[in-house]
Amino acid sequence: MGHLTIKDLARKLGISASTVSRALHDHPDISDATKRLVLDSAKEHSYHPNPIAQSLQRKRSNTIGVIVPEIRHNFFATVVSGIEEVMYEAGYIIMVCQSNESLDREVVNTKALAANRVAGLLLAISLETVNSKHLKDVIRLGIPLVQFDRVVEDLDTSKVVIDDFNAAYKATVHLIETGYKRIGFLSAKEGIALNCLRFDGYLQALNDHDVQYYPELFVKIGGCREEDGRKGAESYLKMANQPDAILAINDPVAVGAFCRFREAKMRIPQDIALVGFSGSPESALIDPALTTISQPAFEMGKAAAELLLKQLESNDDNFSPEIITLDTKLLIRGSSKSEAN
């Protein structure tokens, strides 16, 4: 037999469907005897409430929408695992969409999730997201929204981020202290808060240690994938005066640059040192292994999910957003440690 409905249960008991429904929801108008009868019958016939029907009544589902730039990126896949662990325990299921670094796709995803009456939304913005109208619409609809990792800073929502400024500062200081003098920065998109904070940390470290900043070594590649890193490395290879070290916006970009430099017969780290960002598993697989900023991705997912749950349970119109900043660790490996330095 298919899914047993409230009407089926009512027919078996010879009472109205509305009485069955109210009994199942412990309505005060229904006698204890009728409630017991309905609950026993529901148990006997393995009746389970239909979540879709319930969500239509409540105007909200038990589904949480999650939008990430890319699922193939190990960092975001791990964040999603952290989210899923917390939400599953709390009785929610998650629906994951990827924007593929496209604002248009992010807008479509956001509208689709809102139309599906998600209970809440967790989001890391795409590299193209400089306009947040679609997110303001979500907030206006009363759907709780929590941002993580890549965020629209001036949007009044709870956020879970890392201290991007300090992480980039630490990484740059490490390169300076190892003896590198011409340090480049492989940048994604300038408008993204995370990109700006990492660049500011890099710049501050150069200034604090009296190391010259060379504007031509700030290379914009526009994306966050391996092929973008290869493109960036290509730009450096064409320069008459090349950098001796590079801080990349993330690990895939650093790995892409690494591969291109290797093809050009450059020795790493003797000819050029590389530092990535995110602590992805592949950063440990190349040889020499990549120095990187390890980000607590799983913890970030858990923290974002917990903030959303807190908001869902608050029922308070005066809910005030929280910002959680997680610590990072600099993992120093072979791509920036040279015996020559």
Rank of each mutant, 00 (worst) to 15 (best):
V118K: 05
F75M: 04
A257I: 01
L103V: 11
E234H: 15
G229D: 04
R182I: 08
E226V: 04
Q212L: 12
R267H: 14
D104F: 10
K133V: 14
L308K: 04
V96L: 06
D228T: 07
G191M: 08
P288E: 10
D208L: 06
Y213P: 04
I67W: 02
L194Y: 09
I15E: 07
I52F: 11
Y169Q: 00
K59Q: 14
I176G: 00
M239D: 02
L285P: 00
E70N: 11
D287S: 14
R60G: 13
M300H: 03
Y92F: 12
K133Q: 14
A90Q: 13
A17P: 12
H209F: 11
K43V: 05
A340F: 11
S132G: 06
S21N: 07
N341H: 14
T172E: 01
L206R: 00
L186H: 00
G184T: 06
H73T: 06
I143W: 07
L331D: 14
T78V: 06
V255P: 00
S61H: 02
S21W: 05
R72Q: 14
I183G: 00
A245Y: 03
A23Y: 00
I162N: 01
A340Q: 13
E299I: 11
K238G: 03
N195C: 15
F218T: 12
G279F: 00
I143G: 07
L331Y: 05
R230K: 14
V20I: 13
T291R: 02
F218E: 13
N109F: 06
Y88T: 12
E70I: 03
N250A: 08
V161W: 00
Q57M: 13
P296R: 05
Q57N: 10
A205F: 02
S41N: 08
H73M: 11
L103E: 10
L121G: 01
L155Q: 08
R11C: 03
N318W: 10
V160M: 10
S320Y: 14
V152K: 06
E216F: 09
L247G: 01
K136M: 13
D287M: 10
S16R: 08
T19R: 04
S335N: 07
H73G: 08
A42E: 05
D163C: 06
Y213W: 10
G229C: 10
V160I: 14
H134G: 08
V173K: 04
R262S: 09
I221R: 00
I324A: 10
V107E: 07
K35R: 15
P252C: 09
I64Q: 02
S18D: 12
Y92I: 07
G301I: 02
F319Y: 15
A264G: 08
A340G: 04
T63I: 13
R58T: 09
V211F: 02
L145K: 04
I246R: 02
K12S: 12
S320D: 15
